[in-house]
Amino acid sequence: MSSQNNPTNGFNGEDSPLIQTKNLYKSYFNEGLETKVLFDINLTINKGEFVAIMGPSGSGKSTLMHILGFLDNHTEGEYEFHGKAARTMDEDMLAKVRATRVSFVFQAFNLLPRASIYQNVMLPLIYHPIIPAEERDSRVNKAIESVDLTDRTNFLSNQLSGGQKQRVAIARALVTEPELIFADEPTGNLDSASGIQVMKVLQDLHDSGHTIILVTHEQSTAEHADRIIELFDGRITRDTEEFKTRWAVDEDKLMK
């Protein structure tokens, strides 16, 4: 369901992995001073995965998410999305990718203040280059329905509780039906009940075929994912996918 509206221009389609990084580095430069944030990140994420990126604060997990989500650029190495190098994309192309292929759920919700739920969920659609204007209304209503907020469609965002706000943010993230949803500490500002609700929604999205990359520092939240990547001081220190693969190989050997 995710890619029916997505343009394929320049992307190698389904053959290449969704996300692949090779020796990716990221540094920030401030008044000539270089601060290295990410070191030698090698990562492959395939379509349909539910990945949690874990690590303590300052480990570089959010930076990694921003790079993978085209909100920020990397300093060295390669990042390929569907086989297309992010480096080769110009500003308009990046905007198009953000509009059509990825979406975000932020810890601070980032809703438009003094705008209704409806207007907030509508926002990505007005920048979508393909979805026709006639389809917008039904898409918005469907997205709001999927997070169970239909009865509050016309509420202003500042009239909502934290959990409701995050559900609006999720509705906004899925209204364009992107193939990849990033969630940055989606439960970080929520009480546990609301947090469970939000994670349930993300779980459902994954079950319906979306690729989800979750950034969190909480083990309990990360456990919703099928795969956990741990970062520490800008380096990947653990990737459960690799263990699984190795384990599978070992198992094969054992079987022989």
Partner: peptide, 14 residues
């Protein structure tokens, strides 16, 4: 708000 608009796909010219 501008950042958010860009994050959901707004182009420079938008």
């Amino acid at each position: 708000e501008i950042g958010l608009r860009k994050a959901v796909g707004a182009r420079r010219q938008d």
